[in-house]
Design a protein around this nucleic acid. Sequence first.
DNA 1: ATCCTATCCTGGCTGC
DNA 2: TGCAGCCAGGATAGGA
Length: 277
Amino acid sequence: MPELPEVETVVRLIRGPVEGRRIVGATVHWRRTVGARDFEARVSGARIARVWRRAKYIVIDLERRSKPAGAIVGHLRMTGRLHVEARGVDPGPYKKVELALDDGRVLHFVDVRKFGRFEYVEDAERELADIGPEPLSDAFTPDWFHAALRAKRRVLKPLLLDQTFLAGLGNIYVDESLHRSGLHPLAKSDRVKPDAAARLRDEIRAVLSEAIEREGSSFDVFYRTPEGNPGSYQDQFCVYGRDGEPCRACGTIIERLVVGQRGTHVCPRCQPRRTRR
DNA sequence: ATCCTATCCTGGCTGC
DNA sequence: TGCAGCCAGGATAGGA
């Protein structure tokens, strides 16, 4: 659901309203969302220095007296939302945390379910140290990718979903990237040839970039940008959620299977189980 | 090392 | 129409 493009969209739209603001008060409506009992004390009075993204995490760097003072690390999981509203706006029954800002506005963390997290940490870099490279960064080179795939002996799709291997991909964008590269989700990672790895790397970057341009994907009521708008990348889906419909590339009916307990969508013609020749 | 299952949650869908 | 039951999904823990 919220994967890299959706989280990136949230970060970009939250950044303007909150960077530079001071948190003048914190209200926790659901304790498990923030974990620690002292969340309110840790964040109250701090200034928001920077908002950034790592994988699917939203990081809000804090400072006190111009010195780093920990961070808030948020994760939307499936249904979390972050948005800034004028004081007095009721975010509805699923509100979990709210941060009052010094301009009178309020940053809301809302979640229909209770999987999302919005926690204070001393050292965000350390907390996120085990995550793999950012697919849109220069570190994600074809050579690195091919070597990394070969070093693992895993089924391709679950490996791509593994955040310690590569950051930010979720069910939707993995299915789309695999389709565009002509690779089957059940392929073994160590059997992916250098040119196929390079192709997959390019398609991952293209899919993510295009999805960011379109402010992510919305196909149910859950994901909305902080401004309340749906994304539009769902209109570009080639396979995700299209089982039973014809492949846009070849007309073959898209199939749904389960890989690593995840609903998985493939075109059996574009993504042959065994590599041709 | 890798894989599999359960857990957390709730709205929405399916089938009777 | 009403309702029970199932499913989706990201991350993580624990077991095989």
